[in-house]
Amino acid sequence: MISLQGVTYSYPGTSSPALRDLSLEIPRGQFCAVIGPNGAGKTTLAYILAGFIPHFYHGSLQGEVNVEGKNAATMPQRELLRLVGLILQNPFNQISGTKVTVQDEIAFGLENLGIPREEMVARVAAAMELVGVSELAERSPLGLSGGQMQRVAIASVLVMQPAILVLDEPTSQLDPVGSREVFQAVREMASSGQMTVIMIEHKVEWVAAFADRAIALVDGALLADGEPRHVLAIDTVWRAGVGQTRYTLAARRLQELGKWQDGKRLPVTLDEATLTFKAFQKRR
């Protein structure tokens, strides 16, 4: 459970806030996607949830951030890091460089937490299985492809079993196969009810297919919040520079041509598109 109440934040030395008066509640076990154009404050939100704002980046933070019922700004960071896991964009930067095999790399966080060896072995194996890197266990983490490296990075954080997983554009360096694997793994984790997932993502088609909820940010403020198929159909969201799925795009073309029934909701997912376009065809 995460709750933000009136959160406004400015980086040190900047005058315009990166986030403006943001209020949100994300219940446990939800897979929540954060969408928005560059500079909308998505990464800032991720850093606030992980406690890097205000612990690492100073600046001025107003409002209240609660993670699992505790104030994230005042909670010691060591406590927060057991609650919130963070995955960053660049896979290479997330590989610690201190380990020579993938399994050792994944165990790095557990070593730091002081987990006993037998438990580590089991947890590392489970995490590798979950993101599909078991066959890479003995490879050097720095010798992998970008996609493989990112999956290792995800496993390295998952293995610490955080209650909340925050992913900052984790698929930006992955091919479609790799992206699907990440989305599926994340979907499963959220569905099992063990983990709340907040994923910053540009690939709206995947968001529409997998996420429970989409939050659209523009200029640091909340623009829309709800089920992805609702949020992604909203005109202002699309105009703000958030991508749209190819189904919505097709419907918008029809709208421009004046062939769309006024007020009818635009389809976002494949299923919706199939239904709507079938009806469309029939009507003609």
Partner: peptide, 26 residues
């Protein structure tokens, strides 16, 4: 440019976590 992200990434994995560390390998 990489330095900042690399620092965040090891912080997330408890690099500064207080208390004794264990090791995966013997």
């Amino acid at each position: 440019i990489d330095v900042e992200e690399r620092a965040l990434a090891i912080e997330v994995r408890g690099f500064n976590y207080p208390g004794p560390k264990t090791s995966y390998r013997e």
